[in-house]
Amino acid sequence: MKHPNDHYYLITFQYLGFRYHGWQRQPHVKTVQGMVEKTVNYVLKDKPFKVLGAGRTDAMVSVNNSAFQLILREEVSIDKFFKALNENLPPDIKALEISKLSDSDSFNIIQDVAEKEYLYYFTYGEKMHPFCAPFMTYVREELDIEKMSEAATHFEGKHDFQRFCESSDSQDDFVRSITTCVLAENTELKANFFPKKSYVLRVVGKGFLRYQIRYMM
């Protein structure tokens, strides 16, 4: 329930998800939300707050640019809080920007997401360097990239993705719209230990089901 004295902040951030079980807080496992809340609690010295994420992510998924909403009972100095937040977050989580929301009623961080982009990196053939493990998947079998690229385009549009997700008994809506689904050679994410050739499945839509992109891949 909203409180008339609450203050609302929007924080964009990024993280390497290799050691986390996704964004959402869960019992007995390490999550990004849990780590963010632990850090915020330390910075605020146990003052009340609430964190709302823009969406869930699956285990080990990394995020380059996402956002969460921070709700505080007391106003803070943005510059001081932002500096303290980044200084105390672990090295694999970084806050990018912070802004104060002037009208919380006109913004819903979950429902107002305009677009999400998912990049699934992979390679095949010769086994990749172990340092690649946080960034891409290795496939032992020979792959026909041309046929895979053609197949990817068939996911575009509005479809029932029930067979392409990990569903639960309480879920009954499996229809999602994919605006872009392209498989091509990776030309953006680079490192000197990456294989000579790697590939990426790029999927764009407003939202995805649990494990949907992995099943599509």
Rank of each mutant, 00 (worst) to 15 (best):
Y42A: 08
E150R: 14
Q69N: 08
D144F: 05
E37S: 11
N65L: 09
K30L: 14
P90L: 05
R163N: 15
D103G: 00
L101H: 05
K50S: 12
V36H: 00
N41V: 01
F49P: 01
K47D: 07
C165G: 10
S99M: 13
V61D: 01
S77V: 06
E142K: 15
L44A: 03
A152T: 11
L85N: 04
V200N: 06
I11Y: 02
F68D: 05
V36C: 05
H21F: 13
D160F: 00
L70V: 12
S149W: 10
I93H: 00
L70S: 04
R140T: 07
S177I: 01
E150H: 11
P48H: 07
H7C: 13
R163P: 04
K50Y: 12
L70K: 06
Y42C: 05
W23T: 01
A151P: 03
L85I: 04
E146R: 15
S149G: 15
Q26P: 01
F18L: 08
N64I: 01
H7Q: 14
I78D: 01
M148N: 13
F13S: 05
S99A: 12
L72T: 06
V175H: 13
C132Y: 12
I109R: 03
H129D: 15
E117W: 07
K94Y: 05
A191I: 06
L72P: 04
A84K: 15
Q111V: 00
F135S: 02
Q162C: 07
H154P: 00
N186D: 13
T137R: 15
A184H: 14
I78H: 06
H7Y: 14
S62F: 05
P91I: 02
S168C: 10
Y215W: 11
F131K: 13
L96T: 09
R25I: 10
